[in-house]
């Protein structure tokens, strides 16, 4: 089985973000980057499937500047067999441009299964996977929390409000992976890191499609006001209740 996983390099979301000078991007100085969490789970899912189905290969693909090679190496260190960088100066905000580049790469790859994270944790759009499926004319199963392959078809499960949806679809197909499909992505061992240095990493220009959507402005959320101590003991209760009703409007 040939599996492709499309991964995105994103900033560590725990960081304190600053808006860049253009007002429409984040200031990247001091930020640490890593693979998007959902993409990590997708890589893990692919590796587990490959372990289950002998003779499988896992190829990871990422679009962006040369820094994405670091993210690709991490996936190789985890156990992926090959990596492809679709080189672009930056990652366009419009998912369609990215989807077109990915589809161009994936089209003739002969992949049985193309995996994405359910969404990238920085842009949180979650549309690239489905758009690639549309461009390639493949079935698309999104937000899977379970995925099994049987020969030329697959079954999956997705959590919906108050229940579980069971899916069946033929391969090749595009799937996006939700939290819960794997317990945890594996931590690359030093052995894996050393082996990754010798695995193939191809770099080719990204055939980006036309950019339809651009970001015009970014704003940080308003700072939260400092907490206030109303008073101590039972005497403070009436004032607290009054404030909760009139100011916070939660009662």
């Amino acid at each position: 089985m040939k599996i492709a996983v499309c991964i995105k390099r994103v900033p560590d979301m725990g960081a304190r973000f600053k808006i860049g000078a253009d007002g429409a991007s984040i200031d990247e100085t001091g930020l640490k980057f890593d693979m998007s969490d959902f993409d990590e789970w997708a890589v893990e899912a692919a590796l587990q499937l490959a372990e289950k189905h002998a003779g499988s290969t896992v190829t990871v693909i990422s679009l962006g500047p040369d820094s994405v090679q670091e993210t690709l190496r991490k996936a190789l260190a985890m156990g992926a067999d090959a990596a492809v960088q679709l080189k672009a100066e930056s990652v366009p905000a419009g998912g369609f441009a990215v989807a077109q580049a990915l589809a161009a790469e994936l089209k003739d790859g002969g992949y049985d299964l193309i995996l994405f994270g359910r969404l990238a944790v920085d842009s949180a759009a979650g549309i690239t996977g489905p758009m690639v499926a549309e461009l390639l004319g493949l079935p698309c199963a999104t937000a899977l929390c379970k995925l099994d392959v049987q020969g030329t078809s697959a079954t999956g499960e997705r959590q919906i409000e108050g229940g579980v949806e069971q899916l069946a679809f033929p391969l090749p197909a595009v799937c996006t992976i939700d939290q819960g499909l794997v317990v945890q992505a594996r931590y690359p061992s030093l052995k894996g890191i050393m082996a990754a240095k010798k695995k193939p990493l191809a770099s080719k220009p990204a055939a980006l499609g036309g950019v339809g959507v651009t970001i015009t402005k970014m704003e940080l959320p308003a700072e939260r006001a400092a907490g206030r101590i109303v008073g101590e003991g039972a005497d403070a209760v009436p004032e607290l209740v009054r404030l909760l009703q009139t100011e916070a409007k939660v009662l």
Partner: peptide, 19 residues
């Protein structure tokens, strides 16, 4: 280093050290 085996609580420690 060979087997990536460690208590699960350690993973966030390693990841924080990295990031």
């Amino acid at each position: 280093l060979n087997e990536s085996r460690f208590p699960e609580e350690v993973l966030p420690t390693f990841e924080s050290l990295e990031r």
